[in-house]
């Protein structure tokens, strides 16, 4: 049996590591302006948010219902979802965040940048 101090130190260290990683994820900004919509792992739509002048919205159908995705210049959000928890709606607008919008019931993920083809283009143009 380890002393209580051992466990407190161990968990405090774990907490600090996870906190630091969380801050990196939440504070992280991507240079990309391209939003990728994935459903069930497949890329279903790519939108360059910097090219959007007129706001528009569209609906994505998933296994648990539909999500309405709203796009404005430089930002994107899920404005409506059929699921009861509404987590994706509450995530609000994202413009350059590393953390993606996730709707688990509909297996929908909206991520800014981060796709392999994106990095490739950056590599060529850079």
């Amino acid at each position: 049996m380890k002393s209580t101090k051992f466990w407190i130190v161990l968990i405090a260290v774990l907490l600090c590591v996870c906190l630091a990683a969380s801050i990196l994820v939440l504070g992280g900004k991507t240079q990309s302006t391209t939003a990728h919509l994935y459903q069930g792992g497949a890329l279903v739509r790519t939108i360059d948010l910097s090219q959007v002048n007129e706001p528009f919205s569209f609906t994505v159908e998933g296994p648990a219902g539909s999500n309405t995705v709203q796009v404005e210049s430089g930002r994107i959000r899920v404005s409506h979802a059929d699921c009861p928890d509404q987590v994706c709606v509450h995530q609000g607008w994202i413009s350059n965040s590393v953390a993606p919008i996730v709707c688990l019931p509909n297996q929908l993920v909206i991520q800014i940048g981060g796709s392999p083809s994106e990095t490739e283009i950056d590599g060529v143009s850079g």
Partner: peptide
């Protein structure tokens, strides 16, 4: 499971945040 179901590794970005919440709620 979320990565397996959505088949999108990007979901992993939430792991550290969930772990922080797990430590606090678990405590």
């Amino acid at each position: 499971v979320a990565v397996a179901i959505t088949r999108t590794p990007g979901v992993l970005a939430y792991l550290p945040i969930l772990l922080v919440s797990g430590i606090l709620t678990g405590l």
